[in-house]
Design a binder for these strands. Sequence first.
DNA 1: GTCTATAATGCGATAGAC
DNA 2: GTCTATCGCATTATAGAC
Lengths: 217, 217
Amino acid sequence: MTQAPAQDRGARSRDAILDTAGELMARYGYAATSISMISAECGLPASSLYWHFGSKDGIYVAVLERARTTLLAALPPAEVPGADVAQRLDVFLAEVEAAFQRHPRGVKLLLGLGTVQQDAGAAAVAEVHHYRDALLTWARDALSAVFGLRDHPEVADELARFTLRMAGGTAVARWFEPDAVLETGPLRVALLALAAHHGVLVRGTPGETGEGRRVPG
Amino acid sequence: MTQAPAQDRGARSRDAILDTAGELMARYGYAATSISMISAECGLPASSLYWHFGSKDGIYVAVLERARTTLLAALPPAEVPGADVAQRLDVFLAEVEAAFQRHPRGVKLLLGLGTVQQDAGAAAVAEVHHYRDALLTWARDALSAVFGLRDHPEVADELARFTLRMAGGTAVARWFEPDAVLETGPLRVALLALAAHHGVLVRGTPGETGEGRRVPG
DNA sequence: GTCTATAATGCGATAGAC
DNA sequence: GTCTATCGCATTATAGAC
């Protein structure tokens, strides 16, 4: 405990800055979050923020980068276990819901794009796009594996965009209801119906698929 | 054409301010939109904006009020014509898509809540909530009528929230793809499946319901 | 109602001691 | 790496002539 490992001081400050900046920017948006707010909240002077990140843009880029890697690491990989579609979908949605629950700021930070576009640099805008592209790719791969859509990439794309719009809409809903979660129940029904609608649900389960109401009571 | 009807000068300026303010705030968010930006864009001096609206908050409140009444007027009423669910749903979704298409800023302005919460007054925050509550009430009433859910208010509520999350997610998607529209095709499939899932689709149409792929070709 | 001019404040960013 | 102090500038908002 000898005071502080010296070389870790900087890294710990860096993390503290990213923590508070991420929280404030997710809550208020990029433009409404000032350097002095972050400085006051995390206890370090403004000049330290500039020493670590160079600019307000730099802070936002670093916040987004960390949020992206953290969220993508928490989201389920493409190889979801499960014998059939219904099983894999249940596992997939449960993990997605948990990931969004554990990292609530991950998606909300993306909503700042509009406010960033105006007064942030090209690097920040590029990172926002990179973030959203990574999420779209992830969703496409994961849903393709869940539904077995190797031969129907356009269906996987539709399911992915549908899922991401629900996620985005949920992030918006949290402005109004802070406890709102990704409602995987309706989403599950919708995804199954969409797959069936496109005729790609091999194992026939057109309407219901092992949902609670089918379970013998 | 005698110069200008004199009494209309003020009203026309008022509208011009709201037009440009609405466009800028929808694009960049509340915090990132400055008085000087609006002033430069609409040609009137900053002091005129203050004469008309008193403050930046006042402008935002007025913008939101007009967007709310305009959008709600463009959205289909609860009494959608149609003999069965499928017909009414088609009409409903077509009108909703058209309304969101014609008033693209209507929903996007709502996304500014986060950036407003920080540095705007209570009136602005209240109006944002009012706006979103009005949309939720509209969606509940309209979908209740479309699906005949007078006896199942909780189902109407779920369908309404689902629809609004899709709309919110679509508004978010427009940050990245400006041409993105409310995809009523997948939404239609999802709503029918959700209704069927809750067992409230009286006229039996569990899986497909007069969709294009069923039409004889 | 619209204009010019300006006050008061907070912003992002930097300099330089330590 | 962290601190104090500060520069230059844009911001919201107001005063007062017209």
